Simulated scan of single mutants.
Amino acid sequence: MSEITFQADVDADRAKVHEALDTHDGLTGWWTTGVDREGEVLLFDFPEIPEPFRLRRDRADKEEIVWTSIGAFPPHWSGTVITWRLTDAPDGTGTRVDFRHAGFAADDADLPHTAETWGLLMDRLKGYAETGTPRPFFTL
């Protein structure tokens, strides 16, 4: 199995980063304006995509947020797990975000594109958490 990992130090406290990852306003502030929720299942809509990504919220505490892809779309995400681990930044200010998206097939041809997109999204997450200014990567 293959995985994507990123690490970013965000000049914002953990509560602010957690809010960006676990609330409607937070998620629409950096990822996509198409966010909905059915219980513990997050639905993410994107332009020109036939159905929403369905991510089950498995954990959401102040140290870790975990989602499992339970939808049929995109097919290569099915069963993958996204983990956001939040710790204090090494310099004592801000929050370190360790991101992991695991469970991809070793020969997944879409992995490079997915990794590139997550890299761009991490930059949007950092900017939103630091400034509070929404700048979603995808808009409907």
Rank of each mutant, 00 (worst) to 15 (best):
S2C: 05
I4F: 14
T5W: 02
Q7G: 15
Q7A: 14
Q7S: 14
A8T: 14
A8F: 06
V10T: 12
V10K: 05
A12T: 05
D13I: 10
A15F: 02
K16F: 04
V17C: 10
V17S: 08
H18K: 12
E19G: 07
A20E: 05
L21I: 12
L21M: 06
T23D: 07
H24V: 08
G26P: 05
G26M: 07
L27D: 02
L27M: 13
G29Y: 09
W30F: 11
W31K: 07
W31R: 06
T32I: 08
G34W: 09
V35T: 10
V35G: 04
D36V: 13
E38P: 03
G39P: 12
E40P: 09
L42G: 03
L43D: 13
L43V: 09
F44T: 02
D45N: 13
F46H: 11
P47H: 08
P47S: 10
P47R: 06
E48G: 11
I49M: 13
I49C: 13
P52F: 08
F53Y: 09
L55F: 08
R56D: 03
R56P: 01
R59P: 01
A60I: 01
A60G: 02
K62D: 14
E64T: 14
I65M: 07
V66K: 08
T68R: 12
S69K: 00
S69Y: 08
S69A: 15
I70S: 03
G71T: 05
G71M: 03
G71E: 01
A72W: 00
P75F: 04
S78W: 00
S78H: 12
G79F: 02
G79K: 00
W84K: 01
T87C: 03
D88I: 04
D88F: 03
D88P: 03
D88N: 11
A89Q: 03
G92D: 05
G92W: 07
G94T: 12
T95S: 04
V97S: 01
V97I: 08
D98Y: 00
F99S: 04
H101S: 01
A102P: 00
A105T: 07
D110F: 14
D110W: 09
D110G: 07
D110L: 13
L111E: 00
L111W: 01
T114S: 04
A115P: 02
E116Y: 12
E116N: 11
W118T: 03
W118M: 11
G119D: 14
L121W: 06
L121S: 09
L121G: 13
D123H: 15
D123Y: 06
L125V: 10
L125R: 05
L125Y: 12
Y128D: 02
T131E: 14
T133C: 12
P134N: 06
P134I: 04
P134V: 06
P134G: 14
F137L: 15
F137H: 15
F138P: 11
T139S: 15
L140D: 11
